[in-house]
Amino acid sequence: MSENTHTQEHPGYGLYIVVWAGLVGLTTITVALAGFNLVGLTVVTALAIAIVKSLLVTNYFMHVKTDSAVFKVFIFVCIAIFLVVIILTFFDLTYRFPLK
């Protein structure tokens, strides 16, 4: 089968190290930001940084960026279902325990 030969260019060591440096940098930022009082934005910024980090890991370390498009669709479906479920759960919680 043609897929077995891994025809695409093998990524170099350099790219991986750059991505790793980015991940460490983002970790430092998120820890540093936790020291400030960002009021309601604490969770949002922490999650936003975590999402960027996981995108870096999936796209580069896990090769999703260069891999077959089918994996992007799969990941999208999986995340979409998780989001739908959590949003619907919160339709119960936010109205059952309204914020004061």
Binding site: A34, N37, A46, A50
Partner: peptide, 12 residues
């Protein structure tokens, strides 16, 4: 772990 870390350690 990327998600566990801020959710457990970085709530202030």
């Amino acid at each position: 772990w990327i998600f566990l870390f801020p959710l457990f350690y970085l709530i202030h």
